[in-house]
């Protein structure tokens, strides 16, 4: 039965037998390189299979690795971004600390230099409306602050206390429209009144036409207002014009950069004018 079955498929049988004998021969015969033909052919074929499989696996691994790498890359990228953001924040904090230390050092030097009793305060807020140029500091009546105490910075005069509360105080900046201070041109001793204009500039009023005032002159506090101690820098003359009246029209650029204020000193010591003004009443 099997023989009949094989006879029907004699072609396949023939090919199978031939192939088997070729394999048999190949197993016994060495190639010119000394390697058995079967081994060489098998190895050659298997090597190609291995090459194909390896290429396929490598490709798959590459694709998978790329996919996983991309996923890892994304998470790594996110983590690095977070780290970078944290580092930037830390750097900014450190920079701020350095600036703060420098400012405090300048304030300390100012306090030592001025022989005034002062207390350092930090600016914790600005004005609620742009029409008023005020800031809020973190010291109040508990710290001995009173209205009309002058506020200074290492660069010059900042303003005065207008509304103190227990733990904070509102400071009217010198550039506010309602602010004013007695001033004197340091070089020519020309006296006048510094008033705020609401912008980044000051006006020096009531300076007689006869006084010599030129651009670049330093304007300091005169101390006659009873608020600001004498001799603190207000700013430098920027423009001097003749107004046609008896007074010069003088524009002063403030010495203090009000947009960059962070720490200030509140002068606790009353000025001589104030003491004189308050003396009789007490």
């Amino acid at each position: 039965m099997t023989l009949l079955h094989l006879r029907r498929r004699s072609g396949y049988l023939f090919l199978g037998v031939i192939l088997g004998q070729i394999l048999l021969i190949s197993a016994q015969v060495n190639s010119r390189t000394g390697v058995p033909v079967l081994e060489a052919v098998t190895f050659g074929i298997f090597a190609e299979v291995q090459r194909g499989v390896s290429a396929g696996v490598s490709g798959a691994l590459r694709v998978w690795g790329g996919y996983v790498g991309l996923r890892n890359l994304k998470s790594e990228n996110d983590a690095l971004k977070r780290q970078l953001a944290a580092a930037e924040v830390a750097a900014q904090e450190q920079r701020a600390q350095v600036d703060r230390v420098r400012t405090l050092q300048q304030l300390l030097e100012l306090r030592d230099r001025s022989n005034l009793q002062t207390t350092a305060a930090e600016i914790i807020g600005a004005a609620a409306t742009p029409d008023f140029r005020t800031v809020t500091i973190d010291k109040g009546t508990r710290d001995g602050l009173r209205p009309d105490m002058s506020v200074i910075a290492p660069a010059g005069v900042v303003g005065r206390i207008v509304v103190p509360s227990a733990r904070a105080a509102k400071v009217q900046l010198l550039i506010d429209r309602n602010a004013a201070a007695g001033a004197i041109v340091e070089r020519s001793r020309a006296q006048g009144v510094i008033v705020g204009s609401g912008d980044e500039r000051l006006r020096m009023e009531y300076v007689s036409e006869v006084f010599d005032v030129v651009e670049g002159d330093l304007v300091v506090t005169s101390g006659i207002d009873g608020i600001y101690p004498k001799g603190f820098a207000i700013g430098r003359v920027e423009t001097v014009e003749k107004s046609g009246s008896a007074y010069k029209r003088i524009t002063v650029k403030p010495a203090v950069d009000f947009s960059a204020l962070e720490n200030v000193l509140v002068v606790l010591t009353p000025t001589a004018a104030r003491e004189a003004a308050e003396g009789p009443s007490q």
Partner: peptide
């Protein structure tokens, strides 16, 4: 006997 038997 034919090809199948012949080849075997």
């Amino acid at each position: 006997s034919g090809p199948a038997t012949g080849l075997l």
